[in-house]
């Protein structure tokens, strides 16, 4: 039985989220984003060595980040529970807060889109103007990544994996009967003007019917 009773977040939860994300970031053990950027590049380099190409390496990174989520993010999900509700569209607020809590960066655009027709998923779309993961890669002569090498993934596959894990953990905690999958739909490294992620929420029964 979920401890969350609230149907939708209100002003109080929005204010709490604005404060809470800053406290979370302030309390976090922090390192320069450049260290994160280079550690990520080296992790992908090793995954390319293991899986043969950048597309397969990024797919593996997505899966690794998604699977690691529950071990690493439990504490965050529990501490953020005062701003949870049962409304799937409120994921926009939680994603925005979580992203700031980990990076200290603001998501410049985020919006919830309810399904346009029956069978469509609920969607949350967000954009990042300055991505700390792909920064400097265009001038990095130690690794040669071409946009066509990325295949179905973007360089930020780990972000998609982490948020796939987080949104599903929140769904379970709050008793939201949806399964979420996050995709990176635009990537600065592919030449897009910004990074874009789409979280798609399918009702649990429908997801179970999928092959």
């Amino acid at each position: 039985m979920s401890p969350i009773k609230k149907e939708k977040v209100g002003l109080r939860e929005k204010l709490l989220a604005a404060l809470g994300k800053r406290i979370m970031y302030w309390r976090a053990k922090k390192v320069p984003q450049l260290l994160i950027n280079l550690s990520y590049r080296e992790t992908i380099r090793l995954l390319i060595e293991l899986y043969g190409d950048a597309g397969s390496a990024l797919k593996a990174m997505f899966q690794l980040a998604r699977d690691a989520g529950p071990d690493f993010l439990n504490e965050w999900v529990e501490s953020a529970s005062p701003i949870f509700s049962k409304h799937v569209g409120d994921h926009a607020l939680w994603i925005k807060s979580g992203y700031y809590g980990f990076t200290g960066d603001h998501i410049t655009y985020i919006e919830y889109f309810p399904p346009e027709k029956e069978g469509d998923p609920h969607r949350v779309v967000w954009r990042i103007d300055k991505c700390f993961l792909c920064a400097g890669l265009d001038q990095d002569n130690t690794i040669d990544i071409k946009k066509e090498d990325l295949k179905d993934f973007g360089w930020g596959a780990a972000i998609a994996g982490i948020f796939t894990a987080t949104t599903n953990m929140i769904n379970e905690y709050a008793g939201i009967e949806f399964t979420c999958h996050v995709r990176e739909t635009k990537c600065l490294l592919k030449g897009d003007p910004y990074g874009e992620f789409v979280a798609e929420f399918y009702p649990k029964e429908k997801d179970a019917e999928k092959p």
Partner: peptide
């Protein structure tokens, strides 16, 4: 694209590195 010089000055949670 943000520059790497700028990234040295900005901080993120070390948990992200621990995860990778």
């Amino acid at each position: 694209m943000v520059s790497r010089e700028d990234l040295h000055k900005k901080k993120g949670a070390s948990l992200l590195i621990a995860m990778f």
